[in-house]
Write a protein that binds this DNA or RNA. Sequence first.
RNA 1: GGGCGGAUAGCUCAGUUGGGAGAGCGCUGCCCUUACAAGGCAGAGGUCACAGGUUCGAUCCCUGUUCCGCCUACCA
Length: 925
Amino acid sequence: MSTPQLDKTYDPKAVEARWYDVWIRQGYFRASPAHPGQPYSIVIPPPNVTGSLHVGHALNHSLQDILIRWRRMQGRNVLWLPGTDHAGIATQNVVEKQLMAEGASRESLGRDGFIKRVWEWKATSGNTIISQQKQLGESCDWDRLRFTMDEGLSKAVLEVFVRLYEDGLIYRGERLINWCPRCLTALSDIEVEHEDMKGKLYHIRYPLADDPHTTLTVATTRPETMLGDTAVAVHPDDPRYRHLIGKKVRLPLTTREIPIVGDSILVDLTFGTGAVKITPAHDFNDFEAGERHKLSRISLFDQEAKMDPAGLHEAKVEGSVLQSLTMKPVQKARSIVVEALTERDALEKVEDHKMALGKCYRCKTVVEPYLSPQWFVKIKPLAAPAIEAVETGKIRIIPEGWTNNYLGWMRDIKDWCISRQIWWGHQIPAWYCRKCNANFIFEPNSTEVQGDKVTEKRTLVITKNAQPIIARYAPTKCSTCGEGNFLRDPDVLDTWFSSALWPFSTLGWPEQTPELKAYYPTSTLVTGLDILFFWVARMIMLGLKFMGDVPFRDVYIHALVRDAEGQKMSKSKGNVIDPLHVMEQFGTDALRFTLASMASPGRDIKLAEERIEGYRNFANKIWNAARFAHMHLTGIKESQPPDDRSFPGLWIRSRLNDTIKIVTMELEAYRFDRATNALYQFFWHEYCDWYLELIKPILQDPLHPEGPATRQTLQDTLEVFLRVLHPFMPFISEEIWQTLPHEGETIATQSYPVPQTHWHDPSAEETFRLFEQSISLIRTARVLLNYPPGQEVRVFVTHEEPATSATLVTLKQNLAHLGRGQISPVPLSQWPASNVLRLITDGITMGVSVEGDVDLKKALDRLEKQIAETDKESQRLDGKLNSADFVSKAPPEVITDHRDRLRALSRDRAMLTSSEQQLRTMLGI
RNA sequence: GGGCGGAUAGCUCAGUUGGGAGAGCGCUGCCCUUACAAGGCAGAGGUCACAGGUUCGAUCCCUGUUCCGCCUACCA
C-alpha cells in the first residue's frame, strides 16, 4: 500500500459523498433477524413526510446513529428502522395549497381523486427528508423504509381498530371536542396549544323571571355564547344566591327562560360574581355541568365557527339580533352581542382578564369547543398497564426526571378523540346500513343543494344514534335488514393512531414475522420531550395491549435545540440554523459531534455556529495527525509487531485504554456530551499535544533503535482511536482508517475497541504527570526570561524525592527535546550558585540558566505571587488541622491528606523563598 | 393555580458517596518551530444567584427568596 497524499486541510464534502455511497452499495446497514448477535433495535421517530431536515432532527438522528453504529461495532444484531409519517392534516394542507394554485380543490377532485393526488405528491416530494438523512450519514436499513400509509401498516391500523372496538375500547359518541374551524376537523386534547392572552371578563345581568327588577349577574369571557345558555349556576352554599336555586332567569336577547341550578363543582364562590352561565355546547366544564343537571345543548356555531341560523333559531334569539348575527364569525358576533347588551343596559361592567386560549397546533387558529359525533378511545384501561410498565422499571425514562411528568399525565389521561374530518389518512372501518339508519343519516342531496344557498347543508351528517358495523372488510349484507346498501364513515384516524403502532407495525405485525420476534421490544427510543404524550405514551399503551410487552426498554429524551440566544428556532423569527447549510460549511462530522457534545441531560441546547466551527477544527486536527503519522509509517502491518516498552508508548496506550473505558461507559449512560469530551480531550490534548511531540525525535531518526516499536504504537493507537471515534464522526474516521493497514472492508463493521487490562499503566501515567509539570516549568521560565522559542537553554532539574529524581534522569532525552535545552538532572548541590532562575512545583525544582541581558522582574513577580498563594493555602489547611472538631470528626484519610498537602506546601515554600532570595541577589535588591 | 428544571470564568456548559473550582469558545502576550495559523506555547479571569439551616467542613444536602425557562390546569 502506498503512502497516500493527504491534503493539508480536511475537505469533508468529497469524503462524505464517496463513503456514504459505498456503505449503501455494500449493504453494511442491512439488518437480518438471522444475525447471531444479541438484538439491538431502534425505530426512528418517523418525521413528517412533508418535512425537511431541521436541526432538531439532526440532533435526534445523530444520537440514534451514534448508538446504532456503536452497537453494530460491538457485534450486536442491529436494526435501525427508518420511515416517515403521513401527517394527515399537514400533508392534506400542502396538497390542497397546490390544488388551489391550479384553481382546483379537494372537492373538485373528489375523495378518490384527491387521495391519488396525495400519493403522487408523495412520490415526487415525499423523499426530501430521506435524502437529507442520508447526508447526515445515518446508518439506517433503508431497505426497510416504512410509511404509515403503507399497505402493511394500514393493515395493522385496521386490525387494531377492529380489536379495540370489539374489546369495547373504541366508541362513537357525541361529545364536545376541540375543533379547528380552519382545518375543519376535530383535534385531540394535546393537539391544542394553550397560549396566555389578555382577555376581558364581561359581567352580564340576567333578570329573574318572576321579578325582572332583580338581576343575577354572571361573569363570562365569551359573551357571544350567552345566547346558548341553558342554565345559570350558583354555589349551593352561597348565602347570596342560595335562595334563587330552582327559580328562573330571562336570558337577555332571547325569549327564553332558563333555570338557576346549584352546582358546587362548576362554581367557585370567590371568582367573578359567584354566578356562572352554563353553555353546554360551547364549554367543556359547562358540558359536564349540563350532564349533571340534564340540560339541553344549543349549538350556535357552524363548522367554520360562524353563527349558524339554525342554532340562533333554536336559541330563540330576538329577531333583530338574529338578523345581524347570522353567519358572523366569533369575534364579530362578540361585539354585536356586547353592543346589544349595552343597549339593553344588561352589561354591568367589563374588566381585563388574563386567560389561556387554545390554538390548533398545526395552523394556530383558535380552536372552538364543538359538539359533534366523534370516535374515541377509552383510554383508562390502556393507561393502567402503561403506568405500571414505567413504575416497575420495565421501561426506563432517561433522564429520570421526566418519569413523573409521564406518570402524572397518564394518571389524569382523558379519552382520546381519534376521528379527523379530513381525507388523507386511514379511513375508519365503519359502515352504516342506509336502510336501518335512514333516520340518523343525512346525506347531501345534490339537487337540493343547487337550489339552496345555505352551503353547509352539503355536509354529510351521521348522528350519534347511527349504528355502525365495524369490520376488516366492507360488509356485503346487513345482518339486521339483509340489504347491502352501506355508507362508509368518511372520517379518518388521527395520524398518531398509526404512529402509536410504529414499533410493531413496521416489523410486520399482525403477521408473526422473524423481524418481530428478533427486534421487538426495541431497545431504545430516542425522542424529544414534545412528543412524549403524543407518541411515546401511546406507543407504550398500544404496544402493551397488542404485543403483550413494552415497545422499548429505554426512552432517551433529549433537549430542544434553540438558537444562541436561547430562543426557540422558528422560520418566522428567522433564527433557524439549517443543518444542511452547516454540513456544507463545516462538514457533517463536525455537526454531529457538536450536537452530541451539547446533549447534556435536562438542559436545552443553545446552538451557535462557533461551536460547530470548533469541532470542524477538531476534525482537521485529526486529519493532520493522520498526515503526520503517514509521513513516518510504512503502511505495512507487521506480522510480529515489536513490543513498545517506551515511556510515551506505555503512557499513550494507558490513556487510550482509559478513553475507551470512559466513552463506552458514557454511551451506556446516554451521556453523549461526556463521551465526546473524552474523545476530544484524549486526541487533542494527549495524543497530539504530547504523544506525537514526544515521539518525533524517534521517528525523525531513521536509525533509532526504538523506531519500529514506536511506529507500530503510533499506527495501532491511531487505528484504535478511529474505531472509538467512528460512531460520532463516521466519515473522517472511515476515510483515515482506510489509509491505514487494516483488515475488513469498512470501519463501520469493525469491532468496537474494548479496554485492555495490560494497557492500563498507572506508573507511566505517574511519570507523565512529572514530565508534564517539568516541561511546563521550563516553558514558563522561557517566557519569564523572554527567550525566543528556538533558543537552546541550559536546564537543571531535581526533586525532593530521590526516587522521583531518578525518574527525571530517565526522562532526560524527552525533557531535552520538548524543553529545547540541555538537561542536567543533578542534585541542587551541583547547580551553579548564580545566574539560574529556579521555579518550583510539587517538589520539582527547575533551574533555567539566565543568559544575556534579561529583565528578572517578571520572574520575581511570579515567585512572589506563588509564595502568597502557597501561604494562603497553607493557612487554610493549618486552620483546619488546628481545629479540634476537624481532627476528631473528619475521616482519618482526609486528615492524612490535609497533612500531606500541608507538608508538601511548606517544602515548596522553602524552595520558593530560597529561589526568591537568589533572584533578589541577582537583581541586587 | 399546580408541577418540573435552571442560576458556576466574558459566552456556552461539565462538576453524585459534601473535604484542594474545571472544559470549550472568547480574551491578553509571544511564536508562520517542515502534521495542523482551522495551529503552538504561556497567561489573565469565578465571595459557584441571594438569605438562612444541617455539618468539623457546603458549589454539592435542607428551607425560604429573587430571576429565567418548560410542562400542565376548567377558575367562568
